[in-house]
């Protein structure tokens, strides 16, 4: 086990007034468990505001959880940790961001960008060694080593994402958090990046936490899947199992809302879902999906269903309890 999250919650304060008093909380993430094993890809899928990016940032230690416990290779890292452990963690957990136009500093060359983590951890003693290593990395992500002294603005979105990938794998991490790594890219380039990520996973035997709003992409990448809605895990388990046999009404809605790609079998007219996700500052008391669910029963509005089932497939819905 590389990383294990137990009962993680993240509430963001909403402040207002002269002294910025807290007037409420955005409940971005509620009681979430997550185990990431070696060379395993966990997919997280959900719509904007469902807490998937917050989860990714907590895993990458960009955000501190409000409560809950995180263990990294057996060490508790939920609170302040000593420098050496922090360093070890940083070396092993990296992140790739959604927007490759924002994730590379426009004022740095490619070699400076990829070299930044290497220098922070003092991996190489000589500039020459480091440069050779970076050239090697560029080759690995399918870029020419002539690009070393160029600047990000000279590259297309797909190429920039390759550079970001090279930076993320430069320290040979065990886990890479991929936050929507393909959604800002052109359709024709998306598949290239997905293929690259898959190849790197095989070569380096690393794990991914793969976050996306696109169910098809997440399914393609993942061994295990987490479906999130309004800060809650509503369904999780084996990717194939969930895809073939979705239990939660929301998962089903998510699957059926995707366009058909077949003009002879249009499905727009079949769509019955209405409404939008509730405000995370003020979530419904019962099941988070109860405000939009077409199958809801009385209990759903009062009581929050627990995530139940076996390791292969868990779901939080009263309808599947029976």
């Amino acid at each position: 086990m590389i990383l294990s999250l137990k009962g993680i919650k993240k509430y963001f304060p909403v402040r207002s007034g002269v002294f910025l008093q807290i007037i409420g909380w955005i409940k971005a993430l509620e009681e979430t468990d997550l185990d990431i094993g070696e060379n395993q890809t966990i997919g997280v899928v959900g719509e904007s505001g469902c807490g998937k990016t917050t989860l990714g940032k907590i895993v990458a230690r960009i955000l501190q959880p409000t409560s809950g416990k995180i263990t990294f290779e057996g060490i508790d890292i939920s609170r302040k940790i000593p420098k050496e452990i922090e360093k070890k963690f940083r070396k092993n957990v990296q992140m790739i961001f959604q927007d490759p136009f924002n994730s590379l500093d426009p004022r740095m060359t490619i070699s400076e960008i990829i070299g930044e983590p290497l220098e922070a951890h003092e991996i190489f003693s000589s500039k020459k060694e480091q440069e050779d290593y970076i050239k090697d990395l560029l080759g690995k992500v399918g870029l020419s080593s002539d690009y070393l002294s160029r600047y990000p603005h000279e590259f297309s979105g797909g190429q920039r994402q390759r550079i970001a990938i090279a930076r993320a794998i430069s320290l040979n991490p065990k886990l890479v958090v991929c936050d929507e790594p393909t959604s800002a890219l052109d359709v024709s380039v998306q598949s290239q990046i997905i293929n690259l990520l898959t190849r790197i996973r095989e070569e380096l035997r690393i794990s991914y936490l793969f976050i996306s709003h696109n169910l098809d992409v997440v399914y393609h990448m993942s061994d295990k899947l987490i479906v999130m809605y309004l800060g809650n895990t509503v369904e999780c388990g084996d990717a194939n199992e969930i895809f073939d046999n979705p239990l939660h009404p929301y998962t089903r809605v998510l699957m059926s809302s995707a366009p058909s790609w077949d003009p002879e079998n249009r499905k727009l007219h079949k769509i019955t879902l209405t409404g939008e996700p509730p405000n995370p500052m003020n979530p419904p008391p019962g099941c988070p999906f109860s405000t939009r669910c077409t199958l809801k029963i009385e209990r759903c509005e009062k009581e929050k269903p627990k995530l139940i089932g076996d390791e292969k497939h868990k779901v939080a819905c009263f309808l599947s309890e029976v």
């Binding site: 719509e47 809605v253 998510l254 727009l268 769509i271 209405t274």
Partner: peptide
Amino acid sequence: LDVTIQAQ
């Protein structure tokens, strides 16, 4: 927009 909203 999100998929479910897009569909609507």
